[in-house]
Design a protein around this nucleic acid. Structure first.
Lengths: 339, 339
DNA sequence: GTGAAAGCGCTAACAT
DNA sequence: ATGTTAGCGCTTTCAC
């Protein structure tokens, strides 16, 4: 079992080294005006006692914490994972460490009302700044800088990083239409999210622009999960006049389509073109065409921007839009409708 | 931009509400002996001022923080992601929130020497207990409970959750041997990890037990990443006498094999049986046979055990071994060696 | 170059 | 039912 000794404090170190706490603190924080022999002595005492500075206490007193916070309702879903990957990369390249705060579950976090709470929780005590993912609030009160990723509000009062969801959906559809598809299914994401609605709007507008009337039967309402997508895909593919292509609102959704197609013996991309927004997970190996990955990139960019704010630089623009782009992993066969 | 007001403290609330700080503190912590009208008044002041409690200050004073920590060198690799998923699930079911601490990068974390630092960092200040992933240290000094996942040491002095890596590898190999394979390739994981070595040992022992001499040319050294695995797979598959099956030491490694096979026009599972340890990512849709997922489960179990320790229950055993098991997603064709 | 002392915002006795 | 007060471990003036 682990040792149950009382925590070693700066006091203990000072006492054993025969100096005052302030001297120890100076050494700890790399201040210059300390005799090198005292410094050495203190360092060795620190090693001996296994002292480590108490984060809470330090945070309470000092400005710079070298810590950025990331607030997410949960850290298990693919979107969250991808954001974290991007944040992680930026963190790895920086002098900052990262503290991810989560309640594990959207329900526990509650909604907008709780967001401010989590922001202050981290920002006013532990961290130099926070990144908040998909916030609903239109405003935050905080001492330290904040950057949001994919906020629900279109033009929030705080810096944000978005994806060009509408444009991306438009390009995706143009690609499918360009292959000759006339009946294109759509599986939507969570309807309360801006991102989802803008992808849907892209779908509709692209069809309209192409002079193809929207068939509401071809629009299935998913929720960005593979499970629901399976049901949606079954629904779409068992229509009397099934779609010859499916535009999945995210990668998990595309996975569901792939899964159902496999069960039904429908080959992708030969019999059915599938295009997935995002491209998280390993679907790139699976015969899907994707709008390339930017979620991770959003995490990366958001972190970089936050760090800029922390070190006092200003942002070129408060809103940053990540450009989505079509990536063809496996070209779909040119499709000509038999009808 | 966000408001730049000075942080609202419990003092401010007390003053505006015309009560003492302790009364506010009582309300904040849901103590009973407060008149309901004062309580209401305080609550409304809290709302007005947008007060939120300072985590650092609170942590410094109180025992119970309702927060567990998770320490990982980085949070971007698939193993880390899977662990977090499991932890997330357990957290969602509990009254605790989660704080994930990472430096973003193994290099920045340094090694064993730094582990203790991170443990104390969280455990002696912010959290009620921590989970540490793949620690090298054989001992930790900490006030609050600790649980490790997949420690490098075989029998550490702290509670741990392992997978039955050796047994799992044995079963995987028995499965492949049972299909009639005589030349089975192996792509190893990071050699400094216990898990990797035990999987390799399972590979060797299974062959030996089957009376098949180990051909060292069939053992490629990977590092649990898809990138390296691609090289390994190319190496193996371009041998004069290539393997008819490959045992990949984890799922990412299996992905690499799949990728190379696709490029070479080798069909899985028809021409090449591939079995991957783990089963993270979406490889289950890819014609691979896998040792089923337990990494996430390790995170889940570890969290549950930590919570037990936090609330004062004791563990049945200090070491918990997750049972691995073969899962056949797509049965490989019975293979008979032509040699 | 070093020490003494004043808090940071909070909780937990101890009073009243 | 509420107020007073003593710290938690640390950094930071301000002395010496």
């Amino acid at each position: 079992m682990q040792k149950k000794k009382r925590t070693v404090t700066i006091q203990d170190v000072a006492k054993t080294a025969g100096v005052s706490v302030s001297t120890v603190s100076r050494v700890l924080n790399g201040k210059v005006d300390v005799a090198s022999d005292t410094k050495d002595r203190i360092h060795s005492v620190i090693d001996d006692l296994g002292y480590t500075t108490n984060l809470a206490a330090r945070s309470m007193r000092s400005q710079k914490k070298n810590l950025v916070g990331l607030i997410m309702p949960e850290i298990a879903n693919p979107f969250a994972v991808e954001v974290m990957k991007g944040v992680n990369r930026a963190i790895a390249e920086s002098e900052f460490d990262l503290l991810v705060y989560t309640t594990g579950n959207v329900r526990k976090s509650g909604q907008a009302s709780h967001e401010q709470k989590y922001v202050s929780l981290l920002n006013n005590s532990l961290t130099d700044g926070v990144i908040i993912v998909a916030p609903m609030a239109s405003e935050f009160s905080t001492d330290a800088p904040i950057v949001s990723i994919d906020p629900h509000i279109n033009t929030p009062n705080y810096p944000s990083v978005h994806a060009t969801n509408y444009q991306g959906a438009l390009s995706a559809m143009e690609y499918l239409l360009g292959l000759g598809h006339k009946r294109i299914g759509f599986i939507s994401g969570r309807p309360e999210l801006e991102s989802s609605n803008r992808r849907l709007k892209g779908y509709r507008d692209a069809l309209e622009k192409a002079g193809i009337p929207v068939d509401e039967k071809l629009i299935a309402s998913g929720d960005y999960t593979t499970e629901t997508s399976v049901t949606c895909a079954q629904e779409l593919l068992s229509l009397d006049n099934p779609p010859t292509a499916i535009f999945a609102s995210n990668d998990q959704t595309a996975m569901g389509v792939f899964h159902v197609a496999e069960e039904l013996g429908i080959r992708i991309p030969e019999d059915l073109s599938v295009i997935g927004f995002d491209n998280i997970s390993e679907s790139k190996y699976m015969g899907l065409t994707t709008v390339d990955q930017f979620i991770s990139e959003m995490g990366y960019v958001a972190t970089q921007r936050l760090i800029k704010l922390i070190i006092g630089e200003s942002l070129d623009a408060q809103t940053y839009r990540m450009q989505t782009q079509i990536v063809i992993r496996n070209s779909c066969k040119k499709y000509v409708d038999v009808a």
